[in-house]
Write a protein that binds this DNA or RNA. Sequence first.
DNA 1: AAGACCTACAACCGCACAATA
DNA 2: CTATTGTGCGGTTGTAGGTCT
Length: 268
Amino acid sequence: MDLHARNLSSSSDHRNEEEIMDVRKGPWTVEEDNLLVNYITVHGEGRWNSLAQCAGLKRTGKSCRLRWLNYLRPNVRRGDISLQEQLLILELHSRWGNRWSKIAQCLPGRTDNEIKNYWRTRVQKQAKQLKCEVNSKEFRDAMRFVWMPRLMERIQAGSGTSTPQPDIVVGSKYDPSQSSSTVVNPTNRNPPGLENSGASSSDYSLDTQFSDMTDCYNPPGNYYGYNGFGSYPENVGLMDRQENEGWLGGGESLESIWNDDNIFFAFN
DNA sequence: AAGACCTACAACCGCACAATA
DNA sequence: CTATTGTGCGGTTGTAGGTCT
């Protein structure tokens, strides 16, 4: 039996099991979050299928794992993706491609899902706007040699008046005080547990997203030697000056493609 | 005011691979 | 060695809320 066939039979068995067990799908409720967090707090994570059963959750192990890793896990960082994070994502993606989990490892507290979503909503939108394939050389070059340098300029320009951005590091999204059975709103900008924490909803609204391009942190200094992130991977040399110089002959055409309006669009 | 459209993001799915029986 | 199970990853979808007309 080949692998695909094995997977098919496995999926089929899994489906039967789901039908029998009446597995829940869709948005998680506060109760479910409570069950999952409480169980993991006591027993630790892993063995997700049995964990789901033992915790009394009518969810698949996969679903539990995803909910934990992307939302309930301590130190999951939520809120707007900072300019530095954007820059890092662009650079790492140009280097590694769609290796979201690998990229996420370099952005503490960010999940692969969040980075993937960022890429799809912002970067692919930009490619579409420019009428080129996101994986095309043209778009990649534009990204590396026009978008990213300009992003860095904005970071540097904003460093003098930087204010803390509204990103939050949440110990856990789980709030035991919430015991209603309301479904956790998947699009609520206030993560569960912060809804009553005093953080106003506007802290997470689009009003703050990119509204202040100076909303960041430490001056990065020289981009090429930048190591602003503690976990910045070794040998990630960001842009390669030699490659850059070798490419510049085509710069003007890209500049014309990636004009200020487009850049504005990209960051708004 | 209301319906259409858009955006962002949580969650699901299929596949691949490693570990284990 | 083979079959099964568990886990992780990347792609995709569904939908609530926001914006536009």
